[in-house]
């Protein structure tokens, strides 16, 4: 389906096992660890595992971007917020902040799993795309695939790319608008 015959050699199996272990242990850590900073660290571990998997698939650019954007910026911001709020507060798990959130969570999980199974059955099981080619040619490996990726994004998928960019800008503007609420603050509330 990929256009190349996959060879399973011992090194590739070892690399896959390592990355899978990193991803799974990290993912389980994110939801089980009580301390939010430790959970964020687990998340970084998962992201690194995914980056290793990307490198094993010769998607070097994606691996680098995975680390730079997700580990280098997004989780740093998570930690930033966690540090500001403090990690001493422990949330009680017996009281639901939202009414009926458990039911909704179960429904959400069911929809996600059903979606994944449909994707696996109907298209390429890794990417979810119907095919992973650009203009009918499969992506080459090595340093050339950065160029192919760039060409694909800025020609075939230009609209999707620009739409995503606009969406992110809208999100930033929205966040700024929400954060800049016009109100007269109570002097006691100001925490400088």
């Amino acid at each position: 389906m990929l256009g190349v015959t996959l060879q399973y050699t011992w090194p590739s199996i070892l690399i896959f096992a390592t990355s899978a272990l990193l991803i799974l242990v990290g993912a389980i850590g994110v939801i089980t660890l009580a301390n939010p900073v430790h959970a964020a660290l687990s998340l970084i571990m998962t992201l690194f595992g995914v980056a290793v998997a990307f490198v094993a698939q010769s998607a070097d650019f994606l691996a680098a971007v995975q680390i730079i954007v997700y580990a280098g910026a997004i989780v740093v911001l998570f930690l930033f917020v966690i540090m500001f709020l403090g990690v001493d507060r422990r949330d009680s798990v017996t009281v639901d902040p939202l009414v009926g959130q458990r039911v909704f969570a179960a429904v959400g999980v069911l929809i996600t799993v059903a979606g994944l199974i449909t994707l696996m059955a109907r298209s390429h099981w890794v990417t979810g795309a119907m095919s992973v080619s650009t203009h009918g040619h499969a992506l080459t490996t090595g340093s050339q695939n950065v160029k192919q990726l760039g060409t694909a994004i800025f020609t075939t998928y230009l609209f999707a790319f620009e739409a995503t960019a606009a969406l992110l800008i809208i999100a930033v503007v929205g966040a700024v608008m929400l954060a800049r609420r016009e109100r007269v603050p109570n002097p006691e509330e100001i925490d400088v």
């Binding site: 900073v37 650019f61 680098a64 580990a71 280098g72 740093v76 090595g142 695939n145």
Partner: peptide
Amino acid sequence: NPPMGILLMLAMSGVSVYGVMLAGWS
């Protein structure tokens, strides 16, 4: 000489932020 080349430097400087940040917090 990895294909990601100079991006590795950016990725690593992204990781070293954690060292400084977590050292201070912990």
